[in-house]
Design a protein around this nucleic acid. Structure first.
Lengths: 114, 114
DNA sequence: TCCTTATATTCGAACATACGAATATAAGGA
DNA sequence: TCCTTATATTCGTATGTTCGAATATAAGGA
């Protein structure tokens, strides 16, 4: 297993390592949506969504198509959706540890106020 | 798809988003190895390997077992190995874009010297 | 042309991650 | 007990990521 393959995988995982980007891919899994649709469904800042889309584009996880003044995005390879499905299964396989992890994620954020 | 599941997935992907940690999981895929074994096979600093192992432990991707003064690590759930296998398939499915990505990764590092 | 809508990019601040050097801990063995 | 081997943790620095605010671009429509 050459190091280049590992760097590639790490790079794709990095692109997937944000809840908003996972949400975008989840939404696109059922069909293409415009940037505005994604913005509306996720209820986030326009610039923020656009930045996350830029990352997904850079890593070639999504393709985009321009129609009039809208840009429609879709998932490029359904294998990525399969990866997300396996991760859901992983979550369920390890329910106990999964919930522990989530609690750590929560408390990590509220650690500011002791 | 609740947001907590997305945060969980993002967190696991974050843990996988480093070539060294992928290499560690690849090595552990065939059976348990000690921290020293990993250090030797990867030819990296002891502290660095130990830090990466700490991350994999924190995200419960690996388990460890102490025997005498050695610590043996193994992959906790083979589903993770399956995820890596799917990523390899993804790499092959998208050979053209994959190589483009790798070149961008390479040139991103040498951008210091124009 | 000017205006509006839709999307992208740039910038700076806050925060997170990665690394090696140094240090700490823990388990045997002499 | 002291020494050695194996592993973990802490610290400082460099680098990368995320966000919103502001700005830029691009395509119609009036």
């Amino acid at each position: 297993m050459p190091d280049s393959l590992r760097r590639f995988k790490a790079d794709i995982f990095q692109a997937l390592a944000h809840p908003t980007r996972i949400a975008i891919i989840d939404l696109l899994a059922t069909g293409e949506l415009s940037a505005g649709d994604l913005m509306e469904r996720l209820g986030m800042e326009q610039a923020n969504i656009s930045q996350h889309l830029a990352i997904l584009r850079a890593k070639k996880l999504v393709t985009n198509r321009k129609s009039a003044n809208k840009v429609f995005y879709s998932v490029k390879d359904p294998l990525i959706i399969e990866v997300l499905a396996i991760m859901r299964k992983y979550f369920q396989n390890n329910l106990k540890e999964s919930h522990e992890l989530l609690h750590e994620l929560d408390s990590a954020h509220s650690e500011v106020t002791p």
